[in-house]
Computed example of a mutant assay.
Amino acid sequence: MLNGYGRERDAVAALDSAWEELKTMGTLAVVRKTEQRGSRAKLEDVTYTLFPTRDFVAEQKAANRRQNDAKVSSSPSR
């Protein structure tokens, strides 16, 4: 996903920064980061678990409901 970076550490730092920005915007409530390390403590993989805020979830559900309602009302009646 972050192939444009020369060092993995820089790519992970950029992603951490992006998650923090989403937290300050009120989209994410919690970000859990799990690092898998290999021999000599070399970083092999990073797994993120993201938890949205309740407000964001409610916003998305409302948007989906509006979209579905618009599809139903615009479809031809039989």
Score class of each variant (00 low, 15 high):
A62D: 14
P52M: 02
L15C: 11
D55Q: 11
G38T: 03
D55K: 06
D69I: 01
D55F: 05
E20H: 13
E21V: 02
G26M: 02
L15T: 12
E35T: 03
V57H: 04
Y5W: 15
E59M: 08
P76D: 10
G38S: 02
F56M: 04
G38M: 01
R37P: 07
A70I: 08
R7T: 09
E20G: 09
D16P: 03
D69A: 13
E44L: 12
P76K: 12
T49M: 08
D45S: 14
D45V: 11
V46R: 14
V72D: 06
R32A: 05
L2G: 13
N64Q: 14
L50I: 11
F51Q: 11
S17E: 15
P76M: 07
E35F: 01
T34V: 09
Q60L: 06
T34N: 10
S39H: 06
D10M: 09
N3A: 07
N64G: 13
P52K: 03
V12M: 07
E8I: 13
R37C: 08
Y5C: 10
A63S: 05
E44P: 03
V46K: 10
S74K: 12
T53G: 01
L28Q: 03
R78S: 09
Q67N: 07
M25K: 15
S74Q: 13
L43W: 09
A70K: 13
V30E: 08
T49P: 01
L43E: 08
T49Y: 08
V46I: 14
K71H: 02
D55Y: 04
G4Y: 00
R37G: 07
V31P: 01
R65C: 01
S75V: 00
K23S: 04
R32C: 03
A63D: 05
A11M: 06
V30T: 11
R78E: 09
R40K: 13
S39L: 07
E59C: 02
K42V: 13
D16F: 05
K33C: 11
P76W: 07
Q60W: 00
E8F: 14
Q36E: 15
R78D: 09
E21K: 11
